[in-house]
Design a protein around this nucleic acid. Structure first.
Length: 479
RNA sequence: GGCGGCGUACCCAAGUGGUAAGGGAGCAGUCUGCAAAACUGCGAUGCGGCGGUUCAAAUCCGCCCGCCGCCUCCA
């Protein structure tokens, strides 16, 4: 069955057919590295991580580029505030971003170009656009003449005359038209700059993505992704630049845009002070739960983060790993049953058809949890009747979990590793918890249930929940 | 004002013509010293509202209401 992708350009779901059968060229707009990355950056990165991994797991050879915008006004301003060079600032936040991505299980893309490493190509494309008559130098700046690109507005559904009417009066009078945007900016003293035919300067924002696509992937690509907010003007401008420069269209066959993460129904913004950094989210939740939260709705829908949402994701993750652990300890023979994947591919059909339908991770997760319930039912029944039946079902469940984990990158850890990570989030030291558990076991032995319960209540009030199982007392962290 | 999107139970969320997945919370039961976990049952005769098409609608059409995003930098 064909993979269907919602294309922002045509506003329809289309069958996915890359230019070269079996190969996918994919580019995603990465972060501007001037501050710690927030949960919204994580959503974009995780969404496209799943998309690239899914395509790969379905047999495509995926070449994936995601850039770092490491030269930009915000970086320069922040660097000046801190009294460091913009290179150093950018480098620092690239490291932070990479660390955050690694924590969230985001695979390193094939290429991670930086704008500052692509300057030659940017200058080359800019020269090309000038020679084709669609861009002009003015002072030390170079602008793209938007009106000369006849399809301008096709991605965002904007009408150029209406944009013109609503455009703010631009103080920059060297532009011929207020809608024209900068390909190259003359640099002020102290700003990062490169030699160019127009004097010392630095690239504008939009051109870097066009240049990096050409440099690393080619003149035309299959998939281009980014946040919804990039549709206009960023991606609209990319199309204009790239198609004018190469003369090839479409520059991008499928445009994909992820929805936003809102905080308590509001957009994250500096002025509201409601930005949730990835690192802050990871202080109180396992990376796996954060990832599950981000994948629990389809990538185009907005997600609303509330105080409860990550806790819910943690509870669901815990449920999954408890079940997995239970299968492994109660039914160790299951791991020796080779569930034949190659001859039972239909067995994963629901999972694949969910993902084939515009990468519906929410549905895929639902399918996994249906299997979790089924597995627990089988094990409860075995316990009640004393006979072990349903081993094949359990083997199927395990292989379904494995398959899903290949592209979701959740449900794929060793249970003990998950619980270790969860325990690391405890507000009280593990040693202290273990000591109290020991004391409680002693109390229970002496049938001093009052004392035993008091210890349990005390731990619970500190976010540690105890469970007395056949294998002894275990504990989990409950926020 | 222009363009786009959304509205499914207490909360989150799938479902785009065939009779409402899944997770969390709640209540009850089994289990347990008691809990927790797991399982079972309960929970929308209903999918923002009103009409229409159809044997059949959350799904298609029309109108209305509410919410949100973009139109300036933004994942």
């Amino acid at each position: 069955m064909a993979i269907k992708i919602y294309n922002s350009l045509t506003k329809k779901k289309e069958n996915f057919e890359p230019a070269v059968p079996g190969e996918v060229k994919m580019y995603v707009c990465g972060p501007t590295v001037y501050a710690l990355s927030h949960i919204g950056h994580a959503r974009s990165a995780v969404s496209f991580d799943v998309i690239s991994r899914y395509l790969a797991s379905r047999g495509y050879k995926v070449t994936y580029a995601r850039n770092y915008t490491d030269v930009d006004d915000k970086i320069i301003n922040r660097a000046n505030e801190e009294g460091v060079s913009s290179e150093a600032l950018a480098e620092r936040y690239i490291k932070e971003f990479d660390g955050d991505m690694a924590a969230l299980g985001v695979q390193v893309p094939t290429y991670r170009p930086k704008a500052t490493e692509t300057i030659d190509r940017i200058i080359e494309v800019t020269k090309d656009l000038i020679s084709k008559g669609v861009a002009y130098a003015s002072g030390g700046d170079v602008f793209y003449a938007v009106r000369l690109f006849k399809d301008y507005g096709s991605l965002s559904g904007k009408n150029i005359d209406e944009l013109e009417a609503g455009a703010r009066v631009d103080i920059n009078e060297i532009k011929k038209d207020p809608l024209d945007f900068a390909l190259w900016k003359a640099s002020k003293p102290g700003e990062p700059s490169w030699e160019s035919p127009w004097g010392k300067g630095r690239p504008g924002w939009h051109i870097e993505c066009s240049a990096m696509c050409m440099e690393w992937l080619g003149d035309t690509i299959d998939i281009h992704g980014g946040g919804r907010d990039l549709i206009f003007p960023h991606h609209e401008n990319e199309i204009a630049q790239s198609e004018a420069a190469t003369g090839k269209k479409p520059f991008v066959k499928y445009w994909l845009h992820n929805g936003f993460v809102n905080i308590e129904k509001e957009k994250m913004s500096k002025s509201l002070g409601n930005i949730l950094n990835i690192q802050d989210a990871l202080k109180e939740n396992t990376p796996e739960a954060v990832r599950l939260f981000l994948l629990s709705s389809q990538y185009r829908s907005p997600i609303d983060y509330t105080g409860e949402s990550l806790k819910e994701a943690e509870a669901a993750t815990e449920r999954f790993y408890k079940t997995l652990e239970r299968i492994e300890t109660e039914f160790p023979e299951v791991k020796d049953i080779d569930y034949c994947v190659s001859c039972n591919e239909e067995g994963f059909a629901p999972l694949f058809s969910a993902m084939d339908d515009d990468f519906n991770t929410a549905e895929a997760i639902g399918i996994v949890f249906k299997e979790v319930n089924k597995a627990n039912r089988i094990m409860d029944k075995a316990k009640a009747t004393g006979g072990k039946t349903g081993l094949t079902e359990l083997a199927y469940a395990i292989s379904l979990f494995n398959e899903a984990s290949k592209f979701l990158v959740i449900f794929g850890k060793r249970p003990e590793d998950y619980f270790k990570m969860q325990k690391a989030l405890s507000r009280i030291p593990a040693q202290e918890v273990e000591a109290l558990i020991k004391a409680r076991i002693e109390a229970r032995k002496q049938k001093d249930f009052k004392k035993a319960d008091a210890i349990r209540d005390e731990l619970l009030s500190k976010g540690v929940q105890l469970e007395d199982t056949a294998k002894g007392t275990v504990w989990t962290v409950k926020g």
